[in-house]
C-alpha cells in the first residue's frame, strides 16, 4: 500500500495510503502498550534524525519508536554538527546516507527542505516538520486520536483555531482530514489565515465561535509569541480574548467533542488551563499515539522495495 520512498507530506498521499498508515498505527499501538515493547521490525535498519530546529516530543517520539522496533538509531542536531561549519543540506544528507542509513528523519525551518534532501539521498526521508509547509506525522497522530475516540473521520466537523498561516500542523491536518472526508473549519486572526486556503476545502470563519459551532473535534494551535512582535496581532491579551479557547467557548462544540493540541501549549493564551487539564482534552493521549504513528511510519517506509501485497 505504501509504494513511495519518502513521506514528505499528506498533500501527496491518497486517502488509501493515509488509512493504511492509520491501520498499521493501531497495530503498533497495541505493541506499544505491552509490558515488553521490543519488536524486531526494524532489526538491522538504521534510523537517523536530523533536526535543524529544537524539538522535544517529536524527536524523542521518533527515537523511541525506532528503538522499540530494534533499529539502530542516532540523532543529529544542526546546532552541534558540521552544519555550523557551513555544510549544505545536500552534503550533510549525502554523508549520513553513505553511512548506511535506511530512514532519515528531518526537521527544518525551511519549507521544501525534506523534498530537496529526498531527491539527493537513497534513504527514505521522513518529514518531521518543514517550515510552514507540513508536519505529516503530527497530523497522522491527530487523526489516529480522532479515529480512536470517534470511530471514524469521515463526516466529522473539525475546528482548527489559531495561527493557520505559520502552522505546518494545521496544513497537514487540513490536507489529511479533507482527504478522509472530514469537514474542516478554521478561524484565527485574519492576518494569520493563509491566502486562498479555502481552495483546500477548508472553510474559513471570521470568529472562533462560528468555527466551533457543533464541532466534533477542536484543535488548538501553538501561537508563536514572536508573531506579535511582527505586528500580526496587537497583544497576547487581545489574542486570548478573541481567539483563546476556554470552557465557555467549548460549549459551542458538540457535547461529546474532543480537544487536541500539538504542544507545547502556551497556557492561558490559545487554551485556558481548565481546558487543557479538563475531561475532553486528549493532549496526553496524542503523545502516546505519536509514538504509535511513528512506529507505523518507520515500519512501512523501511520496507521500501519489497512487494508489500505479498507481505501481509
Amino acid at each position: 500500500m505504501i509504494n513511495r520512498k519518502d513521506l514528505l507530506g499528506l498533500k501527496e498521499l491518497s486517502a488509501e495510503e493515509i488509512n493504511y498508515i492509520l491501520k498499521t498505527a493501531e497495530t503498533m499501538k497495541y505493541v506499544l502498550l505491552q509490558k515488553n515493547k521490543k519488536t524486531p521490525h526494524l532489526q538491522g535498519k538504521a534510523v537517523i534524525t536530523l533536526f535543524y530546529e529544537n524539538s522535544t516530543r517529536t524527536r524523542l517520539s521518533f527515537e523511541l519508536a525506532a528503538k522499540y522496533m530494534s533499529a539502530s538509531a542516532a540523532n543529529i542536531s544542526a546546532s552541534t554538527s558540521s552544519v555550523l561549519k557551513g555544510e549544505t543540506l545536500i552534503d550533510t544528507g549525502k554523508t549520513i546516507d553513505m553511512m548506511g542509513t535506511d530512514i532519515l528523519i528531518i526537521r527544518h525551518p525551511m519549507s521544501g527542505a525534506p523534498h530537496l534532501l529526498a531527491k539527493n539521498v537513497n534513504a527514505s526521508v521522513i518529514n518531521a516538520g518543514d517550515g510552514m509547509n507540513e508536519h505529516p506525522t503530527q497530523a497522522l497522530l491527530d487523526m489516529l486520536t480522532i479515529k480512536e475516540k470517534k470511530g471514524k473521520i469521515e463526516g466529522l466537523k473539525v475546528a482548527i483555531i489559531g495561527d493557520i498561516a505559520h502552522s505546518r500542523v494545521a496544513h497537514s491536518n487540513i490536507w489529511g482530514l479533507t482527504k478522509l472526508g472530514a469537514e474542516v473549519s478554521i478561524a484565527g486572526p485574519s492576518t494569520l489565515i493563509p491566502k486562498d486556503i479555502e481552495k483546500t476545502g477548508a472553510k474559513v470563519f471570521n470568529s472562533v465561535q462560528e468555527a466551533l459551532l457543533d464541532a466534533d473535534v477542536v484543535m488548538g494551535l501553538r501561537i508563536q509569541l514572536e508573531r506579535q512582535k511582527k505586528g500580526l496581532f496587537p497583544t497576547i491579551r487581545e489574542y486570548a480574548r478573541f481567539f483563546g479557547i476556554d470552557d465557555k467557548r467549548l460549549l459551542l462544540a458538540k457535547k461529546d467533542a474532543i480537544l487536541l493540541h500539538p504542544g507545547p501549549v502556551n497556557r492561558g493564551v490559545e487554551l485556558s488551563s481548565e481546558v487543557i487539564d479538563g475531561g475532553i482534552s486528549l493532549i496526553n493521549e496524542q503523545v502516546t499515539n505519536g509514538v504509535a504513528v511513528r512506529m507505523a511510519i518507520l515500519y512501512l517506509f523501511s520496507r521500501r522495495g519489497a512487494h508489500y501485497e505479498n507481505i501481509d
Binding site: 519549507s111 521544501g112 517550515g131 510552514m132 493563509p194 491566502k195 486562498d196 486556503i197 481552495k199
Partner: peptide
C-alpha cells in the same frame, strides 16, 4: 507570489 501556490507549498508569499 502570495496566492494558493504559496499556501500549497507552505512558502512565504
Amino acid at each position: 507570489n502570495e496566492g494558493y501556490m504559496s499556501t500549497y507549498l507552505g512558502l512565504k508569499g
